[in-house]
């Protein structure tokens, strides 16, 4: 009898962690579909400055993405391509394609609270972390993501709150190794596109600097369309800049 209880509890735990994994996976699918193209506007607010940028992005799976800046006019036509773990940038003003070196990967992308690394390694949430359900509160499931020992991620852990009625995240909190909060993402205004749900308002906030945040509003979203493979080549950087 006793043995049976142990068996059950192990089984339950397995189930439990599997469930966490399933939730994370569904969340991830919602965020990217087979492929996704978005038009978004990004507002970066810091103590002294406030800037708005608009851009168009195309991405397929976790390895390929292409981004083009539409606004402001000063930056219009700047394009980014990330393939696997590499990232290139084309700047029309200087007519150069530049490969972003590792030393720049952790710099803030276009001055926002998002790093280049966040842009490139979007996949890692499923591959690099061990998920565990902390609690379930009606529709909201709180999952703790602990990085796998060999995962090349800087965070100590990430706590995400997922609304399982839509499989979208409500809030992600990033912690360092000592368990101190570094930054968090807030997601709002979930909309349905085809079979996918996605929040159309994101806010990235640094935990220490309360006055610094980045807001992203998804203006147009299209899932699973025919994205031309032309976008995911180095030649696209220049070609689609105009």
């Amino acid at each position: 009898m006793f043995r049976f209880i142990i068996f059950i509890s192990i089984f339950a735990q397995l189930l439990f962690s599997n469930e966490a994994y399933e939730i994370i996976k569904k969340l991830d699918e919602n965020m990217r579909g087979e492929n996704i193209s978005m038009r978004l506007s990004m507002r970066v607010v810091s103590l002294r400055h406030e800037r708005t940028m608009k851009m168009q992005t195309y991405s397929q799976g976790t390895k390929k993405s292409f981004t083009k800046i539409l606004y402001p006019p000063k930056d219009k036509g700047i394009t980014f391509l990330s393939l696997d773990n590499q990232m290139w940038q084309y700047v029309p003003k200087i007519e150069r394609v530049i490969k972003i070196p590792p030393s720049m990967m952790l710099q803030n992308w276009m001055g926002s609270d998002i790093t280049n690394d966040d842009m490139v390694k979007q996949s890692s949430i499923v591959e690099d972390y061990e998920p565990r359900i902390l609690k379930k509160d009606e529709n909201i499931v709180t999952i703790e993501l602990i990085p796998k020992e060999d995962a090349a991620v800087v965070w100590g852990k990430i706590i995400i709150n997922i609304d399982i009625s839509t499989y979208t995240s409500v809030k992600d909190i990033f912690y360092d190794e000592d368990g101190e909060e570094i930054r968090y993402f807030i997601y709002e205004k979930v909309k349905k596109f085809g079979k996918y749900y996605i929040p159309t308002y994101w806010r990235v906030q640094s935990s220490e600097k309360k006055n610094n945040f980045t807001e992203i509003v998804l203006e147009e979203v299209e899932y699973d369309t025919e994205i031309s493979q032309q976008y995911f080549k180095k030649s696209a950087l220049k070609r689609f800049s105009r």
Partner: peptide, 21 residues
């Protein structure tokens, strides 16, 4: 005991990252 992430270009030019304890 801390964990650090080291990133560099490998010989094929790709940026790799590695977690080190």
């Amino acid at each position: 005991g801390s964990k650090v992430i080291f990133s560099a270009q490998d010989i094929s030019g790709e940026i790799n990252s590695i977690a080190l304890r």
